[in-house]
Amino acid sequence: MQRSSDRRRGPGRRAEDQRRAEVALLLEQDLTAVSDLVGAIRADPALPEETTRRLSAVDRELSRIIQVTREAAPALSREAADAHQLASHLTRREWQCLDLLVKGLSTDAMADALTVSTTTVRTHVQALLAKLGVHSRLQAVALTTRTALLASAPRTGVDRRDGR
């Protein structure tokens, strides 16, 4: 077996790129949330003028850092942001189905794990495919893996039969 001399093609490099994109996306989201909070505080009319001026400077710096983060992040982070936006509309059951799809379960196995009929599983899977904007289960799994969608999945009330 011949090793590729291009490090860019190795699986370790792709995983590293994915981790960097995930970190950049999370950093951008956190910075945007902080910027929004600063803007809300700055809008308070009872705030002293000096404090308002300092908050404006903080907000400008946050905006600059957000822009640098966006520019430095690979295209994957934009795809991840889009995927996370689409996935925000998934129901709890659709998240569960997506999790089971990523684990490689068949429709029958998913139905057993969720204690529902196979028809119900197919309905949930079709709904999540439509919401994610993909056309197959394989595309859904690829998108989920590439953009770390399950990392942002709501965990409350998830029925985990595998004991984790």
Rank of each mutant, 00 (worst) to 15 (best):
T119C: 07
A40Y: 01
E79S: 04
L47H: 11
L105W: 08
V102N: 00
A81Q: 07
T156P: 00
A148L: 12
G104H: 09
P48A: 08
P154N: 01
T123M: 13
L27S: 09
V121R: 05
R70D: 04
I65E: 11
R92C: 03
E28Y: 07
R137I: 01
E16C: 12
S88P: 02
D17C: 12
V158K: 05
R70S: 02
V158C: 00
C97M: 12
R60K: 13
A57Q: 14
Q29Y: 03
L105M: 14
A130S: 14
T119Y: 09
I65N: 01
H124K: 02
T69R: 05
H124R: 06
A151M: 11
E50P: 00
G39C: 08
L105G: 02
G157F: 04
S152P: 00
A75V: 12
E16M: 14
T91L: 06
L86R: 14
Q18A: 15
L25E: 04
R93K: 10
A113N: 07
E79K: 10
R137K: 15
P74F: 06
E61Q: 05
T51G: 06
E22F: 12
A46V: 05
R93T: 01
A40H: 09
A21C: 03
R122M: 06
A153I: 02
R70K: 13
C97L: 08
S136D: 05
E61L: 08
T115Y: 05
A73K: 04
K103A: 14
L129D: 03
L100E: 00
L105V: 02
V121Y: 05
D159R: 15
A140K: 08
D44N: 15
T51E: 13
